[in-house]
Amino acid sequence: MNDPFKLWSYLAQEPLLWLTVTLAAYVIADWISARMGEHPLANPVLIAILIIAAVLGVSATPYETYFEGAQFVHFMLGPATVALAVPLHANLGRVKRSLAPMAVALLAGSLTAMLSALGIAYALGVRGEALLSLAPKSATAPVALGVSEAIGGEPTLTAVLVILTGITGAIVATPLLNALSVKDWRARGFAVGVAAHGIGTAHAFRINSTAGAFSGIGMGLNAILTAILAPLVMTLFG
């Protein structure tokens, strides 16, 4: 394999290369985010995606080839979703103490996310598969993909919309809630978890640990509620 083109064509087909690129891009993105004082716009997920997209663009690599390697990271979303049961259980006392506010906020946040996203997109002329893919976008990725598939959306498009939603939530939450001077960390965290799932939760944990815990609970509960509500809501738009 002295020919660099042969070497490249071998590596480009192997999962190892794209798995390494994914982890390396994330490490770089995390470093950039830390260097920028964890500014909301310097979101590590967003930066990592931009780095990898640039590498794929320059090397003319199709997404399918990339995903052959990256699927090992993607796969861990399933076990990570199951693992949410552990912090949920650890926060049982807090959950019990704020059961009523959480139930009302969950219903309000989840329905608002779905109905306003569908309403705005519909009003601006989005129809069909793209609209169906939008419905579960506030739920965490593995759940949203399953729901999208079940209601006739395009799971890979949903995945992108889910991640853009999470990044949007992580960017707008702190400035928005500070402007409204909301002081209750339970409320702040929970609402962000419901609206912006794991990426919002990762952001909430960086701001305040109570907010992070409640954000994780909000994400977990909305995962379940979205799975139940999305098929019902889609009958309104179907």
């Binding site: 506010p101 939603t165 209750d184």
Partner: peptide, 29 residues
Amino acid sequence: DAGLALAAALVGSTVLAILAGVGAFVLTA
């Protein structure tokens, strides 16, 4: 094709959902 519409839907709905969630939580509490 639909980038602007999808961006408006994502940003609009995320802001509204956070506001609805926080408002409902604080009020019920």
